[in-house]
Amino acid sequence: MFKRIILIVMDSVGIGHATDAGLFGDEGANTIGHIEAVGGTLRCPTLKRLGLAQIADIQRDEEAVTGLFGRLHEISKGKDTTSGHWELLGHPVDVPFPTFYEGFPQEVMEAFTRETGYGYLGNEVASGTEIIERLGAEHLKTGKPIVYTSADSVFQIAAHEDVIPLDELYRICKITREKVCIGDYYVGRIIARPFVGELGHFKRTSNRHDYSRMPEKTLYWEILQQHNLQTIGVGKIGDIYAKVGISESYPTKSNAHGMNEAARLLGGQFKEGLMMINLVEFDSLYGHRRNVAGYKRALEDFDYQLGGFLDLLEADDLLLITADHGNDPTWTGTDHTRELVPLLGYWKGLTNPIALGDRSTFADVGQTMLANFGLVGDVGTSFLDYIAQAKS
Rank of each mutant, 00 (worst) to 15 (best):
I5T: 14
I6V: 11
V9F: 08
I15F: 01
L23I: 04
E27G: 15
T31L: 13
I35F: 12
L42V: 02
A53N: 07
Q54D: 15
I55H: 03
L68Y: 02
F69E: 09
G78V: 08
G78E: 13
G84I: 11
H85R: 07
E87I: 04
D94T: 10
V95T: 15
P96L: 05
P96W: 03
T99F: 00
F104L: 02
F112V: 02
N123E: 03
G136N: 01
Y148I: 00
T149F: 00
A151G: 14
Q156F: 01
D162G: 07
I172R: 07
C173V: 05
A192M: 07
V196T: 15
K203C: 12
T218A: 05
L219E: 08
Y220L: 06
N228L: 10
Q230C: 03
T231L: 01
I232V: 14
S247A: 15
S254L: 06
S254C: 05
A263L: 13
D283F: 08
S284I: 09
G287N: 08
G294P: 06
K296W: 13
D301P: 03
L306N: 06
E314I: 05
H325S: 11
T337M: 04
R338T: 11
G345S: 09
Y346I: 10
Y346R: 03
G349W: 04
A355Q: 13
A355R: 10
A355K: 11
V365A: 04
Q367G: 06
T368Q: 02
G377I: 00
T381C: 11
D385L: 14
Y386K: 13
Q389F: 13
K391T: 07
